[in-house]
Write a protein that binds this DNA or RNA. Structure first.
Lengths: 136, 136
DNA sequence: GGCCGGTTCACCCGTTCGGGTGATAGCTTT
DNA sequence: AAAGCTATCACCCGAACGGGTGAACCGGCC
């Protein structure tokens, strides 16, 4: 985050310097004003496009849990963890092993999950959880 | 598509008119040149950002099947259809009903799918199919 | 004709899953 | 202290699922 701020600061400083250079340098005398304006417009359009691309590209790759849905559904942290393992394709027994629980406990959490998600099968739970952005 | 072109044409025309207006109108006399340049820079940066956002946002929404993976795995069309229903959270019986097949046939297709996808559970099949972009 | 791949269906068997009920323990809220 | 929530685990039972095998039909290809 800090690195991003520093980079942007440098970019802005360079841009400001370039503007001053254009303003008082040779270009403004060598070319008519429309060319100058065109250069500025092009550069800023490119910067804007890059910015927009980066902002959405990050949203594409990164995933952030819909915490609002989690609380509104009343999902407990443990249930969310079980849900993640479930979506990873693990069986109840495997989930129990990786979470160091009894298979019975996993079953209980899953039953509660199914009720809160209003589904009856694990495959449906995966679909619903993806819809609600509970899992990537 | 045609509508998009028309809209862009109108936008560009308005932008050109605005540039001419700024050039010969009151603004250029009322404010110093840097303000004029700043306005142009801001407008074009915004347009660029919007453009970049739209370009990547479209890629986010649309889904196209990875046909190359389908052929390399040797998935038959019917198997792909069963896979879609599977990912939709339907049970074997439901898939059989909606596809007008016998549950036994669905089981056969699923067995072949699991073998081709190298998985052993339907939840794993969903994950693998999503990885390979066989399903949205 | 014979072979192959896709599709369809059947049966058996063991495992997994889902639903229901009940119980204990810890921690927070009232 | 009582109530409520979370987490934990247990048992039973029926349904769903997965693996294996076998078989039939059809269309295309050699």
């Amino acid at each position: 985050m800090i690195r991003t701020v520093v980079i942007w600061g440098v970019v802005l400083a360079v841009a400001a310097f370039a503007l001053e250079f254009l303003k008082y340098g040779y270009v403004v005398r060598a070319f008519p004003a429309p060319v100058y304006v065109g250069i500025v417009a092009t550069v800023f359009a490119a910067c804007g496009a890059w910015l927009g691309w980066r902002l959405t590209a990050r949203r594409q790759g990164g995933f952030e849990r819909n915490d609002q849905a989690v609380t509104s559904l009343g999902l407990t942290p443990q249930e969310v963890r079980v849900l993640e393992r479930l979506a990873a394709g693990q069986s109840n027994k495997e989930i129990a092993r990786t979470m160091e629980l009894s298979p019975n406990t996993v079953k209980t959490h899953l039953s509660n999950l199914f009720e809160k998600l209003e589904v009856s099968r694990r495959t449906q739970a995966i679909g619903k959880a993806r819809e609600l952005r509970l899992i990537p």
